[in-house]
Amino acid sequence: MSLRRLLTTAVVATFATGGLSACTDNAPASSGATGTAGSGPLTVAASDTECRVSAESAGSGNLVFSVTNNGSKVNEFYLLGEDGLRIIGEVENIGPGLTRDLVVRAVPGSYFTACKPGMVGEGIRSAFTVTDSGADMSATGADKELIDQANAQYASYVKDQTEQLKTKTAEFIALYKAGKDDEARALYAPARVHWERIEPVAESFGDLDPKMDLREADLEPGQKWTGWHVIEKDLWPPSSGYTPLTRAERGAMAGQLMSDTGELYERTRDITFTTDQIGNGAKSLLDEVATGKVTGEEEIWSHTDLWDFQANVDGARVAWEGLRPILKKKDATLDSQIQLRMSELQKLLDQHKKGDGFVTYDTLSKAEVKQLSDAVNALSEPLSKLTAAVI
């Protein structure tokens, strides 16, 4: 997972106001996305010490923030809600000298912009206002029917995945608490795929995400470590220097994970989506692959990264397929490009299947990892244009 995210407790409010939960790289001129009315994209000059946005306000509608990292550290850019917690949109992993675009559909209101040099801390923030431009942000006729269908289908998919996650986690937790480690290890990756398929949605619940999916390498000083990866390490312990959890500690850790999973399940019962959230979520899932799974950092103890990799690709595919009827009408060429790159990536993943799962990531050669990385990058390029094409 990407763990350098700001905390939020109001994801349903984010969805209801048309905010986003992910990022996109490109905004074609035809998308109608702008900064201030008629002025083109807003520019953001990010550095290790500054976050200079070209304007303090913009009219409501489709906005583009073109973020250039002039510093020496990898940076991130966020548009946050009025409370400073709710993530409206984000663009991550902007390397020094690179420019990436964030496309958001913003309603009138008060916001904050934030850059996070080194991808840690609260970031460098400034107030930002979205005024009422009078733009009609609703769809009509046949387009509205396709949009409503895509949104309803994706909401159903998320609900189904959280239901399966709750069921599989309960089975996994029971085995772990009972000390049936071999059986628990066998179920670890299959249970987690349901989290990974909807990872951008799950991560939007910022108070739950760190408790459930925090990696040891991302712990901040004094932060309590709980969740999946604590249990992962206990099931696949290092060869030296590790003290196994006691039975009581196992019970407490398992109980916390089950409680948090139940909370995630409850919060997604009435969740709704918009096309921009779905499109940006698809791209965010590919970003997750590029920054964690393809590097082998996500499942550092179990090496089950390819299960996560496939689950992220599954989630991106479902999001894209739901938007395809809209995309084919607006940009059939882009749809064909995504289809081709998605197929190429899946063929590579299929080469590493073993039984109902995959080989462990530590068995891949450097050449095989590079092949997968190149295929992810190839898909990310057209997928990054999905949101701008459908909104």
Results as ranks from 00 to 15, higher is better:
Q149R: 15
Q164F: 02
S138K: 09
G121Y: 09
L165A: 02
G84A: 09
D132L: 06
T99V: 06
C115T: 12
F128H: 06
V103L: 13
Q153D: 14
G81Y: 11
F128R: 03
K159F: 02
M119Q: 12
P117H: 05
V130E: 07
S126P: 08
E92G: 11
L165S: 01
G123T: 03
P117L: 10
L146T: 00
G89T: 00
T140L: 14
Q161W: 00
A152N: 10
S156M: 13
V91M: 04
T129Y: 06
L98M: 03
G123P: 05
A114D: 03
Q153H: 08
I147P: 07
V107D: 10
F128S: 05
R125M: 08
E82D: 14
I124W: 02
D83N: 11
K116T: 01
G134F: 12
K159W: 03
V130I: 14
G118M: 03
M119H: 01
E82R: 14
L165G: 02
A155H: 11
T129D: 10
G89D: 05
L146W: 01
G89C: 06
R125I: 05
Q161P: 04
G84Q: 11
D101F: 01
V120C: 06
R125Q: 12
V120W: 07
L98C: 00
V91A: 06
A155C: 12
Q161V: 04
T99C: 10
M137H: 09
L102H: 05
E82Q: 15
G121F: 08
E122L: 15
